[in-house]
Lab assay of single mutants.
Amino acid sequence: MGSVRTNRYSIVSSEEDGMKLATMAVANGFGNGKSKVHTRQQCRSRFVKKDGHCNVQFINVGEKGQRYLADIFTTCVDIRWRWMLVIFCLAFVLSWLFFGCVFWLIALLHGDLDTDYKDDDDKSKVSKACVSEVNSFTAAFLFSIETQTTIGYGFRCVTDECPIAVFMVVFQSIVGCIIDAFIIGAVMAKMAKPKKRNETLVFSHNAVIAMRDGKLCLMWRVGNLRKSHLVEAHVRAQLLKSRITSEGEYIPLDQIDINVGFDSGIDRIFLVSPITIVHEIDEDSPLYDLSKQDIDNADFEIVVILEGMVEATAMTTQCRSSYLANEILWGHRYEPVLFEEKHYYKVDYSRFHKTYEVPNTPLCSARDLAEKKYILSNANSFCYENEVALTSKEEEEDSENGVPESTSTDSPPGIDLHNQASVPLEPRPLRRESEIGSRR
């Protein structure tokens, strides 16, 4: 089982795998120059863009038009607004034209077009017409509009002379109601789609790998820009990579689940303020055997998904993003964004995407760390350097704002901070800030 798991979770494809794949392509008759073999020097295209759209195009789909027309309502909801407006206008105009032609044909076959009612006051002739005051196609078209929109100006009306005319008036009224219901329903469904809710759900630009509770963890940050909550919010993550099976089958995008606390339930989050999602790199993680150097040379993509129900409509929305291997910062942490004021908490989104480097973060893999092949620094050293990194950030910001350097908390000259780390230190809580992250 261990060997199978290692093969499945191998992220960085070796040169031997690339040569094996190329040999397979030639042997199977696919070596026509169009096949692409992804190596370390040639990274694959992003499968999920940063804005959440999937970078996929469908080609050679059989009976595409028929399949889309069979699900016309979903098609109308998914198309762009400009095409929705075109369909909206065409549906009414074509129905008016169709029934206008029908009423014109009825008048033509009944002989109503030969009668001039402007110079004739004989009401008996008017009563013999199928539709009064309809003696041309324009008049028939206007009567069709008046019937379907129930305008009723009063000059044109159907008589009991022709039952077919009466039937067409009733039929057009029913068709008009159906068109109204369909168009209004599609427009309302399109307006109520929770897709735009994703514009106020954000992911951090970069993911980070750092120590948390004595273990290497992959972390990324999510935030909600609205005050309205995302009900039943939960997160998922998958690692996408290519691999070759033991039988020699090439899988271009193998999807591997990344555990973010599904078993323990901590994948469900209360997204009021930005939260750091934590994936513990343990023996079940696809990143277990990867060191910093392996991450730098790897070719994979981590897709992160945030799902929840919109509070206003109770409709489920899904926000997506992805991180390539070069977008994962090893040995970094996110800057705090949640600050405790006197009577409330304040979230500073200008710090949302910012990170700071944490010294002495192990550069080895989580496996080597678990097997004690890498000796961690003293816990006080880690905490102290973590505090120094934050303090230096604040000093830089104070210097930019014009604060005198004498007010900063610099260490005395001639003292090495790293050498001082081995000395037991008193706890130094942050002056006014605390970061709330997901705790395992």
Score class of each variant (00 low, 15 high):
Ser173Ile: 15
Leu425Gln: 14
Met219Glu: 13
Lys215Glu: 03
Gly214His: 14
Thr245Gln: 14
Ala389Asp: 11
Ile106Thr: 14
Asn224Tyr: 07
Glu232Pro: 13
Arg8Asp: 14
Val272Arg: 09
Lys215Met: 12
Val310Thr: 14
Leu69Ile: 10
Leu85Ser: 03
Ala165Asn: 01
Met188Asp: 09
Gly31Leu: 05
Asp257Ala: 07
Ala312Ser: 08
Val222Glu: 00
Pro194Lys: 03
Leu376Glu: 15
Lys241Ala: 05
Thr355Gly: 02
Gly261Asp: 05
Ser350Glu: 14
His53Glu: 05
Thr39Ser: 11
Ile258Phe: 06
Arg156Met: 02
Val26Cys: 14
Glu133Tyr: 07
Ile277Phe: 09
Pro274Tyr: 07
Ile106Ser: 02
Ile174Gly: 03
Leu363Tyr: 09
Leu142Cys: 06
Ala181Gly: 03
Glu327Asp: 10
Trp81Gly: 04
Ser14Thr: 14
Ile295Ala: 06
Cys364Tyr: 03
Cys162Ser: 01
Ala389Tyr: 12
Met211Lys: 08
Lys64Asp: 05
Ser136Trp: 00
Lys50Val: 02
Phe141Leu: 03
Ala107Thr: 08
Val303Ile: 12
Asp410Ile: 06
Asn206Gln: 12
Val235His: 02
Ile244Gly: 14
Val56Gln: 09
Gly2Leu: 03
Arg221Trp: 00
Val310Phe: 05
Ala389Pro: 14
Asn360Phe: 08
Phe92Arg: 07
Asn198Trp: 05
Thr276Phe: 06
His343Thr: 11
Ala421Leu: 13
Lys292Trp: 05
Ile415Gly: 14
Lys241Phe: 10
Ser350Phe: 05
Ala237His: 00
Val86Thr: 15
Glu435Ser: 14
Trp96Asn: 03
Asp17Gln: 10
Gly111Ile: 00
Asp263Asn: 10
Leu324His: 11
Phe98Ala: 14
Pro359Ile: 06
Val187Gln: 05
Gly248Arg: 05
Asp299Ala: 07
Cys130Met: 03
Pro429Asn: 10
Arg44Trp: 04
Val93Thr: 04
Arg80Lys: 13
Ala379Thr: 13
Thr159Ala: 03
Val26His: 14
Gln57Leu: 04
Glu400Val: 08
Phe73Asp: 15
Ala207Met: 06
Val26Pro: 15
Lys372Leu: 05
Thr409Met: 13
Leu225Gly: 10
Glu280Ile: 08
Val260Leu: 06
His279Trp: 00
Asp294Val: 02
Lys125Asp: 12
Lys346Ser: 08
Leu69Cys: 14
Leu225Ile: 14
Ser204His: 02
Ala25Lys: 09
Asp160Asn: 02
Asn60Ser: 13
Met19His: 08
Ser264Thr: 13
Glu146Asp: 02
Leu425Arg: 12
Gln255Pro: 10
Ile436Asp: 15
Ile256Ala: 07
Met168Phe: 07
Glu371Thr: 07
Lys195Ala: 13
Asn378Phe: 04
Ser264Glu: 13
Leu94Val: 11
Val12Ala: 15
Leu253Val: 12
Asn378Glu: 14
Thr149Phe: 02
Ala140Val: 02
Gly265Glu: 08
His205Phe: 05
Thr23Lys: 06
Glu146Leu: 02
Asp267Met: 06
Phe143Gly: 00
Gly18Pro: 06
Phe300Gly: 00
Tyr117Glu: 00
Gln57Tyr: 06
Cys364Glu: 07
Glu15Ala: 09
Asp213Val: 03
Ala129Leu: 13
Cys130Phe: 07
Glu371Arg: 06
Leu376Gly: 09
Glu433Cys: 09
Ser392Ala: 14
Ile87Ala: 15
Phe339Cys: 12
Leu218Arg: 00
Val93Arg: 00
Glu133Pro: 03
Asn206Lys: 04
Ala181Cys: 15
Ser408Trp: 07
Ser14Arg: 07
Leu216Ser: 02
Ile72Glu: 15
Arg243Thr: 13
Asp296Val: 09
Thr147Leu: 02
Val303Lys: 01
Leu306Thr: 05
Pro404Thr: 07
Glu405Phe: 06
Ala298Ile: 09
Arg212Val: 08
Cys364Met: 08
Lys372Asn: 13
Gly265His: 10
Lys241Cys: 08
Val158Asp: 01
Leu230Lys: 04
Arg268Thr: 11
Cys130Ile: 03
Met24Asp: 13
Ile302Leu: 11
Ser365Lys: 01
Thr391Ala: 05
Cys162Phe: 01
Val231Tyr: 11
Glu396Tyr: 09
Thr147His: 06
Gly265Ala: 12
Thr407Tyr: 10
Asn60Gly: 10
Glu394Cys: 08
Trp96Phe: 04
Asn419His: 10
Ser365Thr: 01
Asp160Glu: 09
Arg212Gly: 02
Arg268Ala: 07
His110Arg: 01
Leu21Asn: 08
Phe92Gln: 07
Phe262Ala: 06
Asp263Glu: 09
Thr407Trp: 09
Ser406Glu: 15
Lys346Pro: 00
Ser273His: 12
Arg320Thr: 10
Ser392Tyr: 04
Pro424Ile: 11
Thr245Phe: 07
Thr6His: 08
Asp296Phe: 06
Gly111His: 05
Leu142Ala: 03
Asn386Tyr: 08
Ala325Asp: 02
Pro362Glu: 01
Val134Phe: 01
Thr245Arg: 13
Ile209Thr: 02
Cys89Phe: 04
Pro362Val: 02
Thr361Phe: 14
Cys130Asp: 02
Arg243Trp: 10
Gly31His: 10
Phe92Cys: 14
Val4Asp: 14
Asp299Tyr: 03
Asp120Cys: 01
Thr75Glu: 07
Leu271Tyr: 07
Ile436Phe: 09
